[in-house]
Amino acid sequence: MSSQQQIKELTTPVDASIPASSEHTFAIRARSFIRAWGSAMLLAALGLVLWEILVRVLDVQTWILPPVSLILAELADKPDLFLRHASVTAQEILIGFAVSMTFAGVMATAMFWSRLLERSVYPFLIASQTIPVFTLAPMLLIWIGTGIAPKIVVVVLFTFFPVTINLMTGLKSVDSDMVDMFRTLGASRWQMFTKLYIRSALPYLFAGLKVAAVVSVIGAVIGEWVSAASGLGWLIKTSTPKFQTELVFAAIFTLSVMAALMFIAIALLQSRILRNYPGSNAQGGES
């Protein structure tokens, strides 16, 4: 009776103000950002300064290797030009990336449900990576024309692999004790897939997305190299024979920044979505 009473008294709504996870203030974030990236940024700055000094001291011709200041001046001088071409390339990258993610999601899901499909398709996924995409790109021109489509295809060819393989690895690496636990709770295979497998695979998926983000830029440039009328790859290709070296370097710099931004965006998304995962090893237990 008294225990019943006690339960009644204690059964109050859960206090939502209980701090669930530690609060990250801006200062803490800034400090951890500097700790994580500070040394790399310092090294980059050092390298650029050294570049500038060496080019000037050794009196290197600007069409062979322009000094950093000239490249930056080029960027500052023609922001419209770079922005226009960057937006074309970015479009190819983002659409290709989305197609790759969709493809990876469908493939990995299908292979999860069908061992037969996995056994028959997996070798071809690996084999697809032995194709030198650069030689395939001119064929794409013949097959699907000169529009944005062949560029997207090249981006997809570069990016689907890391995403698909990582997602599949993630789906396979689920702890078997967890699976047993779900089974004893009466979970259907679909419930296990949505509530356990996908969640467990997320750290792997993000690892694949990070790799894909970086190589997607290469894919877009190769696509533009073969046939294009715009885009940063096209800009590089057409400026090199004209010895507009500072323009080439400025375009490469823009591409690097785009790849870095993609990477950072995915990393931020990852740290947000996976903030409660203790590392990639997602198990409890004391050991």
């Binding site: 969640r199 409890g284 237990g285």
Partner: peptide, 19 residues
């Protein structure tokens, strides 16, 4: 009978992404 018998394992097997 799977799913009709409650079972608590040696390790807690809590899902880290759920509160």
């Amino acid at each position: 009978r799977i799913g009709r018998v409650a079972y608590m394992h040696q390790i807690d097997l809590l899902l880290p992404w759920r509160n």
